[in-house]
Amino acid sequence: MSKIVEVQDLVKYYGSGENLVKAVDHTSLCIESGKFTAIVGRSGSGKSTLLHMIGGLDRPDSGRVLIDGKDIFGLKSDRLAQFRRKKIGFVFQDFNLIPSLNVWENIILPMGLDGRKVPVEEVEEKMEYLGLLGKRKAMPAMLSGGQKQRVAIARALVMNPAIICADEPTGNLDSQSELEVVDLMKKCVRDYGQTLVMITHDEGIAQMADCVILIEDGKVVSQS
């Protein structure tokens, strides 16, 4: 399969001297297009930092991240932000919903940032897909964890990104919601031809991935 993301000799250190933390230490890897890749590793193994750099949220000390052959850190920061909004969707562990906006407003928020017109039907289709249609007017505080995460997924999906970066999306969910959220995300990969990169420490989720990358101390230990 073709590579959509190529990470080349990526380095990111925090602190200095005795407190030096090698979050990502000369890491290289590839992520295949249209697949579900799980990045697994213990907490503190640097997998979040790695994902943030793949998604262009964080700049590396050195090394390159190529997305579709384009060196994303070679872009100026405004171009990078634009590129990121177009190509990459994020789903976080703590949902990152805006509490003062209702479900619908939260979902269409990124479109407003990009000045796009809201394709109402398309958004409704995705909400239906995620079982959120009846929750349009609900406020985030009224939702369960699983529902909140589905709203966050809808928010990532409406922009039709090529890549969805998910950082422990089931970390704050009960086991049944966890099962469902991961299945939904995997289904998206299949139905919309997207690439899913998910950080997890859950072995059950890793089993569902097409490719598992194991990270230890900022280094790739195995890729299968």
């Binding site: 995620l130 079982g131 699983g146 049944q176 099962l179 469902e180 299945d183 939904l184």
Partner: peptide, 9 residues
């Protein structure tokens, strides 16, 4: 067997 929101488990 249990019925979830979009899936049966």
């Amino acid at each position: 067997a249990e019925k979830l929101i979009r899936y049966a488990m």
